[in-house]
């Protein structure tokens, strides 16, 4: 499943994922945003992996925020924007 969200004043945030047994699997964040250090991409993917498919935006954003070290820098992307892209991917799946 695939969800995209152009963060207002930011960049394009894209999520691809699968659902197995009601949980997010094979979560892949991508887009034309800026993230330092670049290893934070994997940290965010890992934080979303296994989250319940019923999790709301706030819960997803909190899970992402909690996983990130204090020195991670985001430009054109935010935990909240990623959460919107996840919900859009899940919504697309529900419509399909």
């Amino acid at each position: 499943m695939h969800g995209e969200y152009k963060m207002p004043g930011g960049k394009l945030v894209v999520i691809d994922l699968e659902i197995h047994a009601g949980r997010l699997q094979q979560v892949q964040l991508s887009g034309d945003f800026f993230l330092e250090p670049d290893s934070a991409l994997h940290t965010i993917n890992a934080a979303l992996e296994g989250q319940p498919a019923t999790a709301n935006e706030a819960a997803l954003a909190n899970a992402i925020q909690a996983s990130l070290a204090a020195d991670v820098l985001m430009y054109g992307i935010s935990p909240e924007a990623i959460a919107v892209a996840v919900r859009r991917a899940l919504h697309e799946g529900a419509d399909a």
Binding site: V14, S30, G31, L35, D38, L41
Partner: peptide, 9 residues
């Protein structure tokens, strides 16, 4: 492509 972009997308 950018560091975080999906190749196939």
């Amino acid at each position: 492509i950018g560091r975080f972009q999906s190749l196939r997308n």
